[in-house]
Simulated assay, not measured.
Amino acid sequence: MLLELRSVVDRVLAAPDRSSRGAQPPIRLSQNEMPWAPADVIVAAMTEAARNAHRYPDYHRTAARAAVAEAMGLDARRIAIDNGSGTLLHALARLVCEPGVHGVRPGPSFEAYAAALSLAGAESTEVGLDANGAMDLDAMLAAVGPETRIVYLCNPNNPTGGLRGVEDIRDFLKSVPSSVLVVVDEAYREFVSVEPLDATVGLLDEFENLVLLRTLSKAHGLAGIRVGYAAAAPRIAEALRRTSVGFALNSVAEAAVIAALSAEGLAVAKERTAVIVSERARVEAALKAANVAYVPSQANFLFLPGDAADLLSRLEARGVLARPFPKAGGARVTIGLPEENDAVLAALI
């Protein structure tokens, strides 16, 4: 056995050292991440929090909730914050669903909606998108029945990037029974360029059954920290807070929230999202000029219709990692830095 082990080790040591070849790392455009490290103000706050990691974080997340509330112009009683917006969308399903009830979700869209409903014991109906890759609100309304307790809307939609404007959302909410919870997942809201960032926030005063979900993973570049928040009627936000796992928001994450939503942190996020939006427009224009199919997007990615395997192969040949969606009939590629986007264009044009 020892001789066999030595033989294996010898072969490994004799093999060429690929790390010394200077191979370029892949261009990671598969996860809708921001291409920059967190802003300096966020890193400084997280570093300071790490020095006090021997202390428990704030159980009630008071300071983080206050930071979110101020940034959104809302009362802190309307805010619940947790370990990622995915945690919150699962929590909302558990709040209102049980075996025998029903939920409505879009598709193709974020896979977590189906999982949340299934784990809560609910049946669900998947409703296809409209021609622009956005929510088909008429079809979703038609899918709402007597047993429906929750509807998920992804706006802009992932993976297609289609958006329904605030007036469309308002009309939908007017038509949905008030007993149905409408969860609008706005993970990519900061990249929307056709209406203001806060356009949907005013809907919370009109509809008690509305929940807005947002995240710090995208625009603020904090995907690895796992922070998401919900804005809703006080009773819904309180229910989320009461059913949340204690200390789920760690002290480093809380410090990141407060710094990200400070004036300095918001200014950095605004500057960076503007770069992504500008690059999105440039890439779309180049694809359009070359007659390459794409779905116009209001997020930080583009959906490319076509054979997913072929698209991935062409992108990988240029060192680009993208995300395949074979059931949706295409692939999704994140908008990155200009040179990264140039590699995408070189692969497609």
Rank of each mutant, 00 (worst) to 15 (best):
M1Y: 12
L3T: 09
L5R: 15
L5Q: 11
S7Q: 13
D10H: 01
V12T: 06
A14Y: 04
Q24N: 06
R28G: 07
M34F: 09
A37Q: 13
A44E: 15
M46G: 12
E48A: 15
E48L: 13
N52I: 00
A53N: 04
P57M: 05
D58L: 04
R61V: 06
A67R: 02
G73K: 04
A80P: 01
A80F: 04
L95M: 10
P99C: 08
V101N: 03
V101G: 00
F110I: 15
E111Y: 10
S118C: 13
S118V: 14
S124G: 08
E126L: 04
G128E: 14
G128L: 12
D136S: 02
A142W: 01
V144Q: 10
G145L: 07
N158M: 03
G162K: 01
V176A: 00
S179R: 14
D185W: 00
Y188W: 12
E195G: 02
D198R: 09
T200S: 09
G202L: 06
L203I: 02
N209A: 05
L210A: 05
V211Y: 11
L212W: 02
L212P: 00
R214M: 03
R214D: 00
A219K: 02
L222V: 03
V227T: 14
G228N: 07
A230E: 01
R241D: 09
R242W: 05
R242G: 08
F247W: 13
F247H: 10
F247Y: 14
N250A: 06
V252R: 15
A255S: 10
V257F: 10
S262A: 01
G265M: 10
A267M: 02
E271R: 15
R272T: 05
A281P: 06
A285N: 11
A289S: 12
A289F: 05
N291A: 14
S297N: 09
S297I: 06
N300W: 04
P305L: 05
D307H: 13
D307G: 12
A308H: 07
A309F: 03
R314Q: 07
L315H: 06
A317H: 09
V320C: 07
P324Y: 11
A328G: 15
A331K: 13
A331T: 15
R332T: 13
R332A: 12
R332P: 01
V333Q: 05
V333Y: 08
T334Y: 02
I335K: 09
E340Y: 04
D342L: 11
A343N: 07
A347G: 08
